Simulated scan of single mutants.
Amino acid sequence: MKGKRVGVIGGGQLAWMMGSAAPSLNIKLLVQTPSQDDPAVSRASGLVQAAIDDAEATAKLATFCDVITFENEFIDLEALQKLVQQGVCFRPSLDTLAPLLDKYHQRSYLKDIGVPVPKFNLGSSSEDITSNFGFPVVLKARRHGYDGQGTFIIKDAQALNILAQHVPIPELLVEEFIPFERELGIIAARNASGEIALYPVTETYQQNQVCHWTITPADIDDQIATKVKAIARTILEQLQVVGVLGIEFFLTADRRVLVNEIAPRTHNSGHYTLDGCHTSQFAMQLRAVTDLPLGDTNLKSGGALMVNLLGFEESASDYLEKRDRILEIPHSFVHWYGKSSRPGRKLGHATVLLDAEQMAQAPSIIKKIESIWYK
């Protein structure tokens, strides 16, 4: 690539953390985001202030950049396609993104390429869902759902009928409820030369469909880790990804590994890489999209845990006292996004590095961090 000017559609904490990696790679980062107060603006070399799905603004962003990448999926794919015809370079490409943005299309694509997924279909009627899936059952908005928004775990016919009064059932993805043993994730990267880099497999814990913590490496055997990495490699190669993917999995009691969802970008399950790996997922994204060799994905220590610091009230506080108390834990790091608080909002995250002998203590350290934060 002749230059290293990267545009990012989105200005939240993912772009903000990408901005922290840019200077060491001699990359200038420019963002398209609605508000000057969004986290990434403070670390960007330039700003196009506009909605994420404003393709005219993206055309303006492209005049300052060599390549444009993404922080989220809230884009107008059809409008951006016109920019490709004008020579704008997107990485990952729009062809890569096309089967991933709609959850039903994503599930269908994965099934077509032989990747294991839960049983799914489009919603038709309450009666059809009851007869074909039973209860509990999971219904999801096909676009724009994140952090639990647009996901409904329905336990009985009464709850399904109540949902149908508020949400058009035929517009939802319906999938079987998986009584998983644990949830897993992996960050996977590929560049234009076809080089692939896979991070360690991570265990993630979700509550109300929001990630609360991760532990890396996951406490799984080599056979399961090999399955996860083989699936990730298949997805990268089939989609011809140039960039980073966050892939979420269910691990069942009978040792099935099923793909839950794919995020075509950096992902919350990979935040531990900022402090825990030789190359963070954010530096990896920049390396991949600018044709640099991919970096070292190995852990710096025996393992790492990450705890999301979620909002629990409406407040403009920076919670400095709580953050300082977390930092008293040995080998801890806190990343604060500078947002105002509201319940459930991701305000920051804490990472703790552990040696191999300390990995068994990870759950108790997570509880300690959460007791400090939510007290």
Rank of each mutant, 00 (worst) to 15 (best):
L160G: 00
L160E: 00
N161K: 12
I162H: 05
I162D: 10
L163W: 04
L163T: 06
L163C: 05
A164M: 02
A164P: 03
A164H: 04
Q165M: 12
H166T: 14
H166C: 08
H166V: 08
P168F: 04
P168L: 05
P168D: 06
I169A: 01
I169H: 01
I169S: 02
E171A: 08
E171S: 13
E171G: 00
E171F: 00
L172M: 14
L172K: 10
L172H: 09
L172T: 09
L173M: 11
V174F: 00
V174Q: 00
V174I: 09
E175F: 08
E175A: 08
E175G: 07
E176T: 12
P179G: 07
R182W: 03
E183G: 05
E183Y: 06
L184T: 07
L184A: 04
L184N: 05
L184S: 03
G185Y: 06
I187F: 03
A188I: 06
A189T: 11
A189V: 11
R190M: 12
R190F: 03
N191G: 12
N191S: 09
A192R: 13
A192E: 14
A192Q: 14
A192H: 13
A192W: 01
A192V: 12
A192Y: 04
S193G: 10
S193V: 13
S193D: 13
G194P: 09
G194E: 08
E195I: 04
E195S: 14
E195V: 10
A197G: 02
A197Q: 11
A197C: 13
L198I: 09
P200W: 00
P200G: 02
V201M: 00
V201H: 02
T202A: 12
E203H: 12
T204I: 15
T204Q: 10
Y205F: 15
Y205Q: 11
Y205R: 14
Q209E: 12
Q209I: 05
V210S: 01
C211V: 10
H212G: 03
H212V: 10
W213T: 15
W213D: 13
T214L: 10
I215E: 06
T216C: 15
P217E: 06
A218M: 07
A218Y: 07
D219W: 06
D219I: 14
I220G: 05
I220H: 01
D221M: 10
D222M: 13
D222S: 15
D222Y: 11
Q223V: 15
I224M: 05
I224D: 04
A225V: 06
